[in-house]
Design a protein around this nucleic acid. Structure first.
Lengths: 190, 190
DNA sequence: CTGACCTAGTCAACAAGTTGAGTATGTGAG
DNA sequence: CTCACATACTCAACTTGTTGACTAGGTCAG
C-alpha cells in the first residue's frame, strides 16, 4: 500500500509517465523506495482505476505515445490522510548482512569480495546524491534553501538516503578490515 | 529466499525452536531482517521438507512440547553457497520517509509527531543494541574480542544495525528542527 | 544497412510478506 | 478464583514484490 503513496508523493512535482517515474524514481524516491517498472505500471493502472490519478495520452512525434499521469483531488486527499497515519519502523533487510552474519562459516573470500563491491556501489550512490543535493540547493546555502524552498520533503529524504549510503561505505570499510585481519590470523595462527 | 538463509545463519549458534527464533530474531537478526512468527513457522516447515534443517520434538514438563531445529549438513552447504553469491543492494523502504516526502502537502503536525515517535523508538533500539554489544564484548575491548571470538559475523551485523539506528536518531532530530522552523515561517510569514 | 540501445510500455506466473484469527497449556498477580 | 500474560504453535486469505519474456517504433555508430 505504500508504493502508491510513494508514487503520489512523486507526482506532487507535476505529472509524469510510467516510464518517467520508473527512471526518476531512481533519483527522487529510490533513496528509500525501490521497485521494478512492472510493479510501477501495475500500480499506476490500479491507482487510475481507484481514481487517485488520471491518465492523459500524449502523442509524440518520433517516440511511442505515452500516458501522462497526474494526481487527482482524491489522490491528494488520500496522500494527506497517509501522512497523518502512524508508520511502522523498518529494519534494513539486506542480503549482504545475512552473508556477513554467516561469513565465519561460509566463503570468507567471496563475502569480502561482495563487501568490496557494495562499497563501490555505495560510493557511487553517495556521489550521485551529492550531485542531486547540489542541484536542489542551486548555489544557495542549506539555511537559505530551507527558508525559501516550496518543498523541503524531497531534501530531507535525500539527506536520509545520503547518510544511509555514507554509513554503508563506513561499515563496508570497517568490516573489510576486520575480516582481513581475521583471514590473516586464520591463515597463519601463532 | 533470504529469510531461509537468515534462519540458517541464526541456527549456526546451535539449535532453536520456532518460538525461540521468533523471539531471538529480535535480538540477533532483527537489526537487518524482520519477519512475523507466521512467516518463520512456514519457512521452517519448508526448510525441513527441503532437508536444510531437522526437527526434534522436545517434551517439556509444564510447557507445551516444542520442536528444536538444527542445521543439517545440506543446510550448512547451502548457506555457504549463499555466502558465495552476489547480493543486490537494498534501499531503506520506509513509510515514514514517504510521509516526509509528502509532508509539504500533507498533515505537517502529524508528520512531526510521527518523527518524534520514530526518534524515541530508534533511541530505544540504540540502547538495546548497545547492551547487546556490551554482552558480546563481555568486558573485552573490541580489538581483543575480534582477535579471540569464534564468530565476528554477529558483531559486524550488530554494528550495522547500531549505526543505522543512530543515524535514524540524528536524521529525526534534524528533520524536526527543519519542519518546526518551517511551521513557524508558514504560521507567521513576514 | 544492420545491430545495439533507447523509449514506452504489457502479460503471466510465481515467490515472499502481511494480517487476522484460533488452539492449548501454564504461571503469577490481585 | 479469575484474568492477563507467556509458551508454542497452526491455518487461511490476501497483498506485495520479483522474474522473465514480449511488442514496437526510433536513433545512431560503424
Amino acid at each position: 500500500m505504500s508504493l502508491r503513496n510513494a508514487v503520489m508523493a512523486a507526482l506532487l512535482d507535476g505529472g509524469a509517465s510510467g516510464y518517467d517515474l520508473a527512471k526518476t524514481f531512481d533519483a527522487a524516491v529510490a533513496n528509500f523506495w525501490i521497485c521494478t517498472p512492472q510493479q510501477l505500471y501495475r500500480e499506476l493502472d490500479r491507482m487510475e482505476a481507484d481514481g487517485l490519478i488520471t491518465a492523459r495520452t500524449v502523442e509524440q512525434q518520433r517516440r511511442p505515445n505515452k500516458r501522462l499521469f497526474t494526481l487527482t483531488a482524491k489522490g491528494a486527499e488520500e496522500l494527506t490522510a497517509f501522512t497523518a497515519q502512524q508508520h511502522k519502523p523498518t529494519a534494513i533487510r539486506d542480503e549482504l548482512l545475512v552473508a556477513v552474519l554467516a561469513a565465519d562459516h561460509g566463503d570468507l573470500e567471496a563475502v569480502k569480495a561482495s563487501i568490496r563491491e557494495r562499497r563501490q556501489w555505495a560510493e557511487a550512490k553517495v556521489e550521485r546524491y551529492e550531485r542531486l543535493r547540489a542541484k536542489l540547493l542551486d548555489g544557495r546555502t542549506e539555511d537559505d534553501f530551507l527558508a525559501t524552498a516550496e518543498r523541503v520533503g524531497p531534501y530531507l529524504t535525500l539527506l536520509r538516503g545520503l547518510s544511509f549510503e555514507r554509513d554503508n561505505v563506513r561499515w563496508c570499510a570497517k568490516s573489510l578490515t576486520v575480516l582481513e585481519r581475521r583471514g590473516a590470523r586464520l591463515d597463519a595462527p601463532t
